[in-house]
Amino acid sequence: MALMTEANWEPKVLAFCCNWCSYSGADLVGLNRMKYPENVRIVRVPCSARVNPQFIIRAFQRGADGVLVAGCHPGDCHYSTGNYYTRRRFLVMKRLLEFIGIESQRFQARWISGAEAVKFRDTVTKLCEDIKALGPQRKLRDQK
């Protein structure tokens, strides 16, 4: 594997996917033989409400160029109400990240059900394209 340099830079995108909907959705992309960018690293979480907002800050600090939080549609949460809390949390978190100067495209939250393979593919493809256009995320990064 070639060393990553400025010239051949590829974004690292971290996707937190809820076990019950979005992770199955991502799985279905593969089952349907569709492709999505290999820049995406998926972290499976039991519920989108498991995603502590600090995970986002930490991800940016440790080298993520973009972060996606994906969960069940409101009303469809496996635990009934988890994603309603997620919604409140990340509505606020998104604005805080913008306030400290992280471009709004870098952090996204989306509702993706287990049947929405196409939506998962389109969401991450768009996210990766946006981040490629923005370039590497350096704002909260550890100095080397």
């Binding site: 409101p74 109400t81 919604r87 998104k94 996204q108 939250a109 509702w111």
Partner: peptide
């Protein structure tokens, strides 16, 4: 506190 509760008609931005 608002982040410890929710409402069904909170603003939707993540669709």
């Amino acid at each position: 506190p608002p982040l410890g509760r929710y409402s069904l008609d909170d603003m939707e931005e993540f669709m």
